[in-house]
Design a protein around this nucleic acid. Structure first.
Length: 484
DNA sequence: TCTTATCCTT
């Protein structure tokens, strides 16, 4: 168009920029941006919004924000594009922050705004804001379409309230594969395998045809609830009844399911059969986790060696192997693994936990003393652990063995981030109130045990969302029934 | 014209 000397309209630009966004064609998009300025469309609101969206989708959030900030007048679409960009790239706090600014400025929201904000709430476990959005939607009579409804289901499930998620699902007039998948996944995350399977049956009898994602979710639900037979059947019907070809994700879920159930040899054979065709470290990782869970040192070491050869740069593999050695009391091997990590310059991912109190989110990391009330929190936690010990709690020395410095070991075990967050939550909330913690990694066995005791001695319900799933602690036991 | 979700292992 340009070489033919035809003057492009703003419409031509939005279309091309949108195409660049979909292709993640950053370089070409930049050139188009130059043309936008050359042709004098730099101040066109539609073109600007498409540029914000383009840069955001390409992960260039700083540039997107520059274009966004430079807009003399911002349409709701531009706000949405910016919020969505932050959310998609994991900057949920920034997404929420921008949403709050929008609210303060009195900008009118639309359903796209809410979808992105609800996803951000899901990431953060920010149920208070999520509920606020839900109330706003209801009080303003906004129509609950499938996309918005699914975002709500997802928010409630990931923020710990799966029955609310179900209410939303039931109240929706229209369902598609996505909304069914979302609610099944929600039950699965909470360890409610039976409910997940009942819904799956209902879906098959009177809902839309399940797709590949649905089966990942179903298999994962089975894996976390010990429903091996159900999982096997679902996997089989995937091909026979639905003509779907199992992808690597399904195989990983199958290995995970067999491994968690203690069928380690079968899981091992399963991998060998598939790995010869398509090698997949993810399957080995799942098996390694299972070896640790069932304390099978011999197989674990074998699997870990295989895995380290395939993916030498992933710190998590070394951590798992070292944990396995630690459980076996092989301190010498723990040292070796630790030195391998140091040599490769690999660092353990830093764990942190957040707790929301009065709509404010507080973040704790291991041994964290940055909180102004740190002294009180630590003292209270020490007292809690003392009382737990009196009630029968015995510390589980497992992952600690891996800490770099000698004195850090005991220290970091005692002050893992979730314990600090729980102590703070107990100090700041009244009896009868549930404490909800969001953690970026999986819980360690010691914290899991400790929280069971804390729930008992304090007579409190504690909900922890770890990287993968939910734990509801009540009266000294956990909803996962110690089956992670 | 520009904006909107559902998934596995660590």
């Amino acid at each position: 168009m340009i070489s033919s000397c035809v003057w492009p309209s703003s419409y031509a630009f939005t279309a091309v920029i949108k195409a660049c966004a979909e292709l993640s064609a950053l370089g070409f998009g930049r050139v188009v941006h130059c043309h936008v300025l050359a042709f004098g469309y730099g101040l066109n609101v539609f073109v600007q919004a498409s540029l914000v969206s383009f840069y955001a989708k390409c992960g260039e959030l700083g540039v997107a924000r520059k274009v966004f900030d430079a807009m003399p007048e911002r349409s709701v679409v531009a706000w949405n594009a910016m919020i969505s960009g932050y959310e998609q790239y994991g900057y949920a706090n920034e997404a929420v922050g921008l949403f709050c600014r929008m609210r303060d400025l009195g900008v009118e929201f639309d359903s796209a705004t809410f979808v992105s904000v609800l996803s951000a709430c899901s990431q953060l476990g920010a149920i208070d804001l999520g509920c606020w959005v839900h109330k706003y939607i209801r009080s303003h009579g906004l129509k609950l379409n499938v996309v918005l409804g699914t975002a709500l289901i997802n928010m409630y499930a990931r923020c710990g309230d799966v029955s609310k998620a179900r209410e939303v699902f039931d109240s929706m007039k229209e369902h598609n594969v996505g909304s069914w998948t979302a609610i099944i996944s929600g039950y699965g995350m909470h360890g409610y395998g039976k409910e997940a399977m009942e819904l799956f049956e209902l879906m098959k009898s009177r809902g839309p045809t399940p797709n590949s994602v649905t089966f990942i979710v179903v298999l994962s639900a089975c894996a976390h609830a010990g429903l091996v037979q159900e999982g096997r059947e679902a996997f089989a019907t995937m091909t026979t009844d639905h003509g779907l070809v199992p992808k690597m994700e399904h195989h990983v879920a199958m290995v995970d399911m067999l491994g968690r159930a203690g069928l380690l040899d079968e899981a091992f054979q399963y991998i060998k059969d598939i790995d010869s065709v398509r090698p997949s470290p993810a399957m080995w990782t799942a098996l390694l986790g299972a070896c640790k869970m069932h304390k099978n040192i011999k197989l674990g070491v074998q699997v870990a060696e295989h895995l380290l050869a395939a993916e030498p740069e992933i710190p998590g593999h070394y951590v798992l192997l070292s944990n396995i050695y630690a459980m076996a009391g092989r301190t010498d091997r723990v040292e070796v693994v630790r030195n391998m990590m140091i040599q490769k310059g690999l660092k353990k991912q830093v764990g942190y936990s957040t707790v929301e109190i009065d709509q404010k989110t507080y973040l704790f990391s291991t041994g964290d003393k940055s909180h102004p009330e740190a002294t009180a929190i630590y003292q209270f936690l020490d007292k809690l652990m003392q009382r737990s010990r009196a009630a029968g709690y015995v510390p589980v020395c497992e992952s600690v063995m891996h800490e770099l410095e000698e004195e850090e070991r005991e220290y970091s075990l005692r002050y893992h981030s979730e314990k600090l967050a729980v102590a703070f939550g107990l100090l700041k909330t009244r009896l009868g109130m549930t404490i909800t913690i969001v953690k970026n990694l999986r819980m360690c066995e010691d914290c899991h045990t400790a929280l069971k005791f804390i729930s008992l001695i304090c007579n409190r319900e504690i909900v922890v969302r770890d990287k993968l799933r939910f734990h509801h602690f009540r009266n000294g036991s956990c909803s996962c029934m110690d089956y992670w």
